Computed example of a mutant assay.
Amino acid sequence: MPAALADLLVLDLSRVLAGPYATMVLADLGARVIKVEQPGLGDETRQWGPPFAENGLSAYFIAVNRNKQSIAVNLKHPDGQAIVRALARRADVLIENFLPGTLARMGLGYDDLRVLNPGLIYCSITGYGQSGPDALRPGYDTVIQAEGGLMSITGEPDGPPLKTGVAVADITTGLYAAASILAALHYRAQSGVGQYIDIALFDVQLSWLANVASAYLVSDQPPRRYGNGHATIVPYQPFAAADGYLMIAVGNDQQFARFCAALAHPEWVADERFATNPARVAHRAILVPLIAEVIAREPVAVWLERLRAAEVPCGPVNDIPTALHSPQAQARAMVQRIDGVRMVAPAPKLSETPATIRSAPPALGVDTEAILREMGYEPDQISALRAAGVVG
């Protein structure tokens, strides 16, 4: 089947997570992605382990670098810069995550490359953007979670602020970058003009505070931590069953009535303290212990059967192995093995142009020679570049 982005060439100068996640999304949809890495070292996540796969690649690197080619180029060398400029002439998209001004000092900034390729989409991912008092600070996911307010609303009410279990600021920044690149490509298709995209982890973190940020802007009341509970919906949290944890998400009063019936406590529906969601929120300290006492009497499987029969949203609290090997994950083919490496599959399912895994993440510089030959370099030139430490 055809790939939606098969006609696109993406030059990936990013490292670690946000940028590589964005380019992986584009690669899964068919774009050709050339990952530019430092000779001898490469993307630092290549060494972030254990665990490591049998081919020596770290699990971290594997997570976001499939469907890519790797060329090792020394960006500090003039000849290396010339290689990148030549690639940028042909590229549709360039994505990078250096500190602001770094690539410009190498003659590889947007203003430099747009002269060579007016249609280039140039996306810069940084911690704090290209402007503002923090622009020159490096961006790290957990620091962004802290400064962007996420940690202040994560954790138990009487406990310390906590980070999330996955680098969500990085991942969502990668998604924003991919969406912005596609928007810029759509505009270019109409206008013929490329553009510059400035994506900041801090901005992204603030943007997806969503209803929590909105609640503060409406009320001027600082949001607080509710542990696994919900600030404005009750009951909406996990409960301990006899043999594990069960997540219950009662989203409206009709569901609450069915929930009470399933728990054999229909009288709760008529109790004015619990009859509406605002009332339940106001009296959560009374209602939640009542629910917890009932849920603790039976195992998870019993409650899943009863609550699902009552059309009450619920689910078991799975660990990662259980989630990845669940019947639903298998039915959706969400774990795939390519070139001997197991990976989580692309999430979107497109009917005509499906996202696919075509190749495992590349070894460092494995495609250097082939790409240089494609660009017109002769074998003796490539050998000279290797000897000079320009490429690896």
Rank of each mutant, 00 (worst) to 15 (best):
H186C: 11
Y60S: 11
P51R: 05
Q328E: 12
N211H: 15
R32P: 01
L11K: 00
L13A: 00
Y140I: 13
A167G: 14
L87H: 00
R332P: 12
L263A: 02
E378G: 08
V143H: 02
E267V: 04
M334C: 05
C314M: 10
F98P: 03
D111P: 04
A213G: 13
L26R: 00
M151A: 10
Q237Y: 07
V300M: 12
E311F: 05
D220E: 13
M1C: 09
R306Y: 09
G315Y: 03
A329I: 15
R342W: 10
V84D: 01
A6W: 11
R297W: 08
R280P: 07
V16E: 00
L287M: 05
I286Q: 15
L150A: 11
L217P: 10
M106H: 15
V36G: 00
R114Q: 15
P50W: 02
T45C: 02
G107V: 10
R258C: 13
Y128A: 04
D367F: 04
T102W: 02
E352V: 11
G155E: 11
N65Q: 07
I233T: 14
L41E: 14
V234T: 12
G229P: 12
H77I: 12
L150W: 11
V281W: 00
L17T: 11
I371E: 15
I338T: 13
G149H: 08
M1H: 12
L103V: 02
N67T: 06
Y377F: 12
L41V: 15
A323F: 04
P160S: 08
H77V: 12
W48N: 06
P362T: 14
T232S: 14
A231V: 10
E44I: 15
L290Q: 13
L94H: 04
A18L: 03
T322I: 11
F52Q: 03
G129F: 04
M106E: 12
L209K: 06
D319C: 11
V212W: 04
R280I: 06
P327G: 05
D43S: 01
L5S: 07
R297D: 08
I121V: 14
P289A: 03
R15P: 05
N211A: 07
V33H: 01
E37R: 07
S58E: 08
P321M: 09
V300Q: 13
E272P: 10
T164W: 14
G139H: 03
A249H: 06
C123S: 02
N211W: 13
C123G: 01
V204S: 13
Q81V: 10
I233M: 14
L150P: 06
L324N: 09
P362A: 10
C260E: 09
A355W: 13
P39R: 01
K76C: 07
R284W: 03
E369W: 05
A184E: 07
V341R: 07
T172C: 13
D319A: 09
S359H: 12
Q195E: 15
L385H: 06
V391W: 01
A177K: 02
D43E: 09
V143S: 11
P278C: 06
E272N: 15
A4R: 12
